[in-house]
């Protein structure tokens, strides 16, 4: 069961040990009403399989896409999502909040 963010860190370790390319996304800041609190994780492998959540499902797709990039390049990214950034990002949070997500490769 992957109920908690702690379980997700264990999942990230397991996937990496299996030899998969793995990225870890973490909500580092939120403004306004954000669906998931700071510290929430999404774990992504090179195939695009993911576990956990950084929002209520609104931006996971975009985070997975960025994560595949991070797995490829190895360079971490700091992403921002929110209504205010709709021009920069094609996805936004329907709740009107804004979140910042750090995506890093597990090496």
């Amino acid at each position: 069961m992957l109920a908690t963010d702690d379980d997700l860190l264990r999942q990230a370790e397991e996937w990496r040990r299996e030899g998969r390319g793995v990225a870890l996304a973490t909500v580092v800041e939120t403004w306004g009403s954000a669906p998931r609190p700071v510290g929430s994780h999404l774990v992504i492998d090179a195939e695009g399989t993911f576990m956990g959540s950084v929002s209520g499902g609104c931006v996971e797709g975009a985070v997975v896409t960025e994560a595949l990039d991070v797995i490829e390049s190895g360079a971490p990214k700091l992403l921002e999502f929110g209504v205010a950034d709709e021009t920069a990002w094609q996805v936004g949070l329907s709740c009107g909040g804004r979140i910042s997500v750090y995506v890093e490769k597990v090496t």
Binding site: D6, L9, E13, R16, L78, K105, V106, T107
Partner: peptide, 25 residues
Amino acid sequence: MDLALLARLNEERAARRAAVLVTDL
């Protein structure tokens, strides 16, 4: 994140010890 660092973090949790991962953004 380095796998060894992630493993260490998971190990500390399993042993019921608190820890803080510090990431310079």
